[in-house]
Design a protein around this nucleic acid. Structure first.
Lengths: 205, 205
DNA sequence: AGTCAAAGAGACCGAACGTTCTACCTCTTC
DNA sequence: GAAGAGGTAGAACGTTCGGTCTCTTTGACT
């Protein structure tokens, strides 16, 4: 059966998802009702409940959307050397923080509203974080495997701090501190590599 | 029977405040209604509204309470040398993260729920963060004034990251990364002090 | 003894919440 | 042209929300 390629993936649904993305990220989750999302997406309540089981599923879909965007961002940051990839990734993160719509990490914000570890929304947050931690660890491991895990943890901690404070103080200063911290971390990591075979920045990511 | 021997600062009010502290921190703010707080504090609604203008003021009072606890914690961490004070402060923060009730930074969590910068709750968050940033900056300035500001920003960023992720992954690993990061930062800061003259470009592990 | 503020008990309000429902419309595809 | 999925429109559900109200009881201090 040939699927009609042009229209069918439901335009109303994507409008709903885009609106949810914008509003949930900008104003939080618990504090916005579905009435507002439905209205702003120019969709009726019935349409929302045809595409999603309820608000909760919409929230998870929202986080899934952000997760996909982050993975695309990470993929776009690939460079020839893992160190440069880490730098490019940090720069991409910094660009996000500098953007006027920046309102912190969507996942950290969501976790603050859904503390219950068993809740599907919280689980979505954990899943995303696991992916990110793993991705960064792999990049460090390409430089040197031994100390990759703690270095990656350090990197993620800096990122979390930068994302958390990016909308609570001057974003420019936050970015400067973040980029500098990452650079110091990467430099120190590469510096210690000498003596343990393998030339720096040689491997392709 | 209500045995009230020391009723001056209103026993019901402090019961209310303690309950709000526990519940807001554990479960978030928007997702808990005053009904639950009133019930758990064993107080009637009328009593709540006698002591507070409304939920909003109760939330601010909750954050004020946490702020006071943090200042006490910082005061208790004072050592003979500023470097040791920074270490003690980090250890105190790590202890908080290790505690089973740890649920992240109350202020970061509150900011996630109140993104509007003009909102009183958000303002309370900013005020606390300003105090903390200032306190850490002063400690670094006691070692060397020139590079104190960026070093303090780095310290606070690590703290934010540790607090944010402390309840999203293994607290022990988070603490280890945090303490190690702070130690590297302090070491690098002290090391560069020799020779002074304000060398540019701080390098932290 | 009398006063008065603090607190308890609980009914009550309007609004907003997430959710469900029926009824009708408009396409595409068979 | 019948079928059926996706969409619109709007009413309504029961619950919970934050907040206000009246009335009574308590206990400390003049």
């Amino acid at each position: 059966m040939a699927r009609t390629e042009s229209t069918r993936p439901s335009e109303a649904r994507s409008r709903l998802l885009n609106t949810a993305l914008k509003i949930f990220y900008a104003d939080g989750i618990h504090s916005v009702g579905i009435d507002r999302i439905v209205e702003e997406a120019q969709v009726t309540r019935a349409t929302l409940y045809r595409h999603f089981l309820g608000k909760e599923e919409l929230v998870v879909a929202y986080l899934t959307e952000v997760d996909a965007a982050m993975r695309a961002q990470a993929a776009a940051a690939r460079k020839d050397s893992p160190a440069d990839t880490l730098r490019a990734l940090s720069e991409a993160i910094a660009q996000g923080i500098r953007s006027p719509e920046f309102r912190g990490c969507a996942f950290l914000n969501a976790a603050a509203e859904y503390p219950d570890p068993d809740h599907p929304v919280h689980q979505a947050v954990l899943a995303h974080r696991e992916w990110f931690q793993h991705t960064v660890t792999e990049l460090f491991a390409l430089i040197e495997e031994e100390r990759a895990v703690p270095a990656a943890r350090h990197f993620v901690m800096l990122r979390d701090g930068a994302m958390a404070s990016g909308c609570l103080s001057d974003p420019e200063l936050v970015c400067e501190t973040f980029i500098r911290g990452v650079e110091g971390l990467v430099q120190a990591f590469i510096a210690q590599e000498e003596g343990s075979g393998g030339s720096p920045g040689e491997r392709a990511i």
